[in-house]
Structure formats: structure tokens, C-alpha cells
Amino acid sequence: MFEARITQGSVLKKLVEALKELVTEGNFDVSSTGLTLQAMDSSHVCLVSLTLRDDGFDHYRCDRNMAMGIHFGNLSKILKCAGNEDTITLKAEDNADTLTLMFESANQDRISDFDLKLMSIESEHLGIPDQDYSAEIKMPSAEYQRIVRDLTSIGDTVLISATKEGIKFSTSGDVGTANITLRHNTTPEKPEEQTIIDLKEPVALTFALRYLNNFSKATPLAPQVKLSLTKDLPIFVEYQVGDLGNVRFFLAPKIDD
């Protein structure tokens, strides 16, 4: 059987809200080491990889590996019924066709359970290579969200260029053009407000803003986001979810014809 309990149930609510528009369905792969999900968007342009470690949960038990096919829109409907302060427990018997979600209020005076119907999903697992990136940028997640949101109102694609001067986001559209440059900034006292640029070599890549904007739905999960860039490779956008794990997004670049 599988059982995972998390006192801070709001984290699960935020996770599903972050993913549900990008991926309509996918498999929660559960094992003794935790819960993972790998899924592509419907146009196969980007990949989402979620890792939640067993020791990040308040209680975790998984007797045998299972792939639980989840429709994220439906999971979102159920999680919207959980209070922000609720403890959430996920439960499934071996080979079950439902996932039980149990919500307990902070003072234990309200307990509810919902069964989510599971799906059978054929999913292709992609191998994500470990690699060194030409540029790694850590910045406040709210800053990333603001940049991609602002640029989405001007253009469809963004040229991200990392140089010694900083990291520049450029777009153009019917109304005109926009450039936003961020510089290395470690002066804020709080580490989560700092911008740290680690540049091995200059790099410039073009991406569809629609997806970068969609990734920023994970902003409530983490104060910082990390962007990693290498020439001719997908951008890697990572949010650390406290001690629980991480959400990683990979977006294939636009390539000049």
C-alpha cells in the first residue's frame, strides 16, 4: 500500500495549481524513495519533472512501486476542497483504481475524504542528462514572474542573453520592443532577495514566452527560482519546494531556420 501524509497540505494545492495548465494528465510514480512525475505538455515542447522525497513527508510508506495515472484538472477540483491549513494524506491500495485524499483541519474537528479515479496513462520517459550549464541565474521567483508576465504583454518570444553585463530579456511585438536587464546583486540581506549570476560563457537563446509564463505559476512554492542556459539546449527552470523536493521545467528553444 501507499500512504503519504503532509501537515502543510497547502504545498500540494500549490503544486497542482502550478502544473495543471501545462500538463493535463500524468503518472505519479511512487516508490520507497518518494513520489515523482514526469510529463510533457500537449505540444511536446516542454517537460515537467516533479520530485517529492519520502523524508519530506511527515509520514511516508510505499510497499511496492506504482504508477498512478492522474488527471490534474480533477485532482485540482478535489484539492480545492482542502483548507489551506489542512493536513493532507494520500492513500492507495496496491493496484488500486482510486487515490484517496484525506483532509484534516488543524484542530482535528473536520475530517473529509475524497476518492480520485485513476487513469491508465501510457507515458514515455525521457532521460534528462546531467550537465554543466553555460549560465546559471538564481533570482527571486517573484522577479522572474514579473519579467515574463511583462514581456508576454509585448511579444511572443524572448531572447535571453547572459553576458558579463548581466542577464538580458528582450522581446518585440506590434507595440514595440522591450529589454529588461538583471545584474548580479547580493546586497539584499535576505538570500531569497538576491540575484546570483554564475556565468561560464556567454549564451543567448530564444524561447516562447507562453511557456516561461506558465512555469511562473510555481512562484508560490519557492522564494527563488534558478534558470540554467546552454547554447542550443532547453532552458532549465527550477523551483525548490522547501525540504520536500523540487519542480523542474525544461523548455526547448526556438531555432533559427
Binding site: M40, S43, H44, V45, C46, L47, E124, H125, L126, G127, I128, P129, T157, T206, A208, L233, P234, F250, L251, A252, P253, K254, I255, D256, D257
Partner: peptide, 14 residues
């Protein structure tokens, strides 16, 4: 003009 690449052309199936 530019073309949107697919993610699977970078990460192999496994």
C-alpha cells in the same frame, strides 16, 4: 523566422 523545437529531440527516450 524560427521554429519551435520539440523537447524529445534533446532528451532521449529511456
Amino acid at each position: 523566422k524560427s521554429t519551435q523545437a520539440k523537447i524529445s529531440s534533446f532528451f532521449g527516450g529511456g
